[in-house]
Design a protein around this nucleic acid. Structure first.
Lengths: 129, 129, 129, 129
DNA sequence: GTGGTCTAGACCACA
DNA sequence: GTGGTCTAGACCACT
């Protein structure tokens, strides 16, 4: 469960993406309790302050809610989660296509390269089954 | 020719991507001279030191060569440019697919969402014709 | 601990060599923390930016790792350090022999002149005991 | 006869070393005429100004003499040439030993590594015979 | 005019 | 307190 952190980007952001991933994949569902700040800190091996910041940011985006003395929970608002998933996808697709086009790749090339990469991923994935 | 800089990421990196874009789109070809540090600085409205750093980083990656008293040039090595283009594509595709899968999107969804976004972009593009 | 800087060569390079020397002599070992940018700057009497550049270059060569908010550390990879030591030696020996041969010195002359110089150094060293 | 220039060091210095090498190897002897600035410039592919500077520096060090309208000549003073050879050797040996010791290599290691490198060079050299 | 280096001083995000 | 980035302005060597 250790995460490979990219030292060039804020750890709290990468940790956010990690939790958002879990929520978007429905590993963490509406209302579920997140592990405590300390637990997470130990588990992923970062400073508790950093985890705390992660939780604060997610709360600011209304994806989680912290209840004093009880812990931090995924929002009950399923609509919110669906939106998170959609926004996330759109943001990444948009950024991806923008940068690819800016680098002179056309639609055909982009689709082809993605297909190719997906085949590689699928092959690698199967080996681990 | 003005660039919209994202305040959250280093300017020198964004400037690198700008030039790499030009090279990948073959707007700047092997052996071409880049504008001087000072010219670029004025043009994009940043400090010459920042441009200098951009050029240095690109030189470290062997995409450009700086010659004292002469200027900075795109590498003569066409192979290097092709690699740049491939590496760029692979890096972005990889990161994109990783994050999408991490967020629980499967192949079909990913391909579909990209197609949808491409249609929107094309429609937007045509309006400008 | 003050360093005599050669005015004709970049300070940041000489500072790199200074730290590489410490690492090759095992005064700084794998995982050790380097003094902070600001500390080093004060100690050797140069601008923090210059020290920063030194640390950046060493990080680029994977000899040290900078961790935001924590400091800069010698790599944990002992293999890397051994390689640094070997590369350093090879680089200097190679350059030295190349230039000596280019100046028309043969093997015997080179070995003899080194022996002679080593005797002088040893004599000088003993005087300081 | 093309020279591999290290872009990080002044070309005029590298060109000086090239000529000093020829003189120390007695390929250019006392009183010999150097090729004209233009000839050299064309031959090694650098700006005539750069060659001009090289010749000026060598004249400043009294190793060559330029005679107006006639060209540039190696000094007639054989003593000067011998000193050049010795000074060159001493300078390089001194710098070399200093840096090796600074990097924690002891006498035995240094001598051994040089012997090893010389064997490699000799083997490589023979292949070209 | 060109890139390379350095200083001084500032601000920021991270831990 | 830590490194990272940026600006402003300066000087230098090379072409």
């Amino acid at each position: 469960m250790t995460i490979q952190f990219d030292q060039n980007r804020p750890i709290y952001l990468q940790l956010m993406e990690y939790f958002y991933g879990k929520i978007c994949r429905f590993e963490l569902e509406a209302g579920d309790k997140l592990p405590s700040v300390r637990e997470t800190a130990v588990e992923v091996g970062v400073n508790p302050n950093t985890v705390s910041r992660t939780y604060m940011e997610m709360e600011r985006e209304k994806v989680v809610i912290s209840k004093r003395g009880q812990g931090t929970f995924v929002t009950e608002d399923q609509q919110m989660i669906n939106e998170l998933r959609e926004r996330t996808a759109e943001k990444h697709i948009d950024a991806f296509l923008t940068v690819m086009i800016q680098n002179g790749f056309n639609e055909e090339e982009i689709m082809e390269l993605i297909q190719k990469q997906l085949r590689i991923i699928n092959k690698g994935g199967r080996e681990n089954e």
